[in-house]
């Protein structure tokens, strides 16, 4: 393990002597790594647990935040109430989870597929780039939710407008990162391949695709987070056919706050699981790349 912060001992008396000597990490390497991992795990669990506790306390004592925002037990549920809620047990929210998951997976697959394809084509060909770059760059800045009325007119009130909106959003994130990744493959790698007389396909297969995969997966992970964002947004706007967003909204209109909290937690969980899956696939496909910890949410 590389220690980046070796505190050198400086002797203040007399002439200065710098001592470079082993630290805890060097003297007991196994124990040090074990302790560090234990501390990391404790923090990862402890911080959310502490926040939950704070929430429970604030609810129980009806804290008055900043002098004017009073926690009113009638409108806010506590973690304990949520977990033990009878209404929650009656609510059939697993159907909503499945509806959302399906929308997200189909939308993501469509958008990511198209994004990778167009991104690769544009990264590899100057002509394709010239043809599509101005158009896509202009469309990129349009807030995707603004397309919803249009999609509703075109596709009607079924699953398609929701799925398409997710696909379009994902497409732009994946397209940009894929194109940038292809163009960032170092010239030296291309020249080495060209010196062996590779064909266009071989160049793609052996150099450009593997060279850009790590960067493409960064884009996919960001897109995975954004897909959940858009999914919940759409479902809140048109809650008529179920989904986690609709669950959140139902909690509000039916005055069952527990439902809203559960919906928010489920959305977070869905996003977390999905980004983890994308990351895991990435790790399988790019065993040579160092693992990075870029967050899944964009």
């Amino acid at each position: 393990m590389t220690n980046t912060d070796p505190n050198t001992t400086v002797d203040k008396r007399g002439p200065r002597v710098l001592r470079r000597e082993p630290g805890v990490a060097e003297i007991k390497p196994r124990a040090h790594v074990r302790n560090r991992k234990a501390a990391e795990r404790a923090l990862a669990i402890g911080v959310p647990a502490a926040l939950l506790l704070l929430w429970q306390l604030a609810h129980h004592y009806e804290w008055n935040l900043l002098g004017y925002w009073k926690i009113d037990q009638r409108f806010y549920a506590s973690p304990y109430e949520i977990v033990t809620s009878e209404k929650l047990r009656e609510a059939d929210f697993w159907r909503d989870v499945w509806t959302s998951t399906r929308r997200m997976l189909i939308g993501f697959a469509l958008g990511a597929g198209a994004g990778v394809f167009i991104g690769l084509a544009m990264g590899m060909s100057r002509l394709v780039r010239a043809a599509l770059d101005p158009l896509l760059t202009a469309l990129y800045t349009v807030p995707k939710l603004a397309l919803l009325p249009l999609f509703l007119t075109i596709f009607g009130f079924d699953e398609r407008p929701r799925v398409m909106l997710i696909a379009v959003t994902v497409f732009f994130f994946v397209w940009i990162s894929t194109m940038a990744a292809i163009m960032a493959v170092p010239e030296g790698y291309r020249e080495a391949a060209m010196s062996f007389g590779v064909s266009r396909w071989q160049m793609f297969r052996h150099v450009l695709l593997p060279g850009s995969l790590p960067q493409i997966f960064v884009g996919l992970r960001i897109a995975a987070g954004v897909a959940v964002l858009i999914l919940i947004g759409v479902e809140l706007v048109i809650p008529s056919q179920g989904g986690i967003g609709s669950l959140i909204e139902r909690g509000r209109t039916l005055l069952i706050p527990e439902l809203t909290y559960v919906g928010i937690a489920l959305a977070a969980l869905l996003g977390l699981l999905f980004t983890l899956v994308v990351r895991w696939i990435g790790r399988l496909l790019i065993p040579w790349a160092p693992e990075d910890n870029a967050p899944g949410q964009g």
């Binding site: 220690n3 710098l18 001592r19 000597e21 082993p22």
Partner: peptide, 24 residues
């Protein structure tokens, strides 16, 4: 190790300094 970028696993290096510069 001499530069202080890395610690030794055992033993020690001592560097005698005359001045008080921050980057000796």
């Amino acid at each position: 190790i001499v530069a202080g970028l890395l610690r030794p696993s055992a033993g020690a290096v001592e560097v005698d300094l005359a001045g008080t510069s921050k980057t000796p």
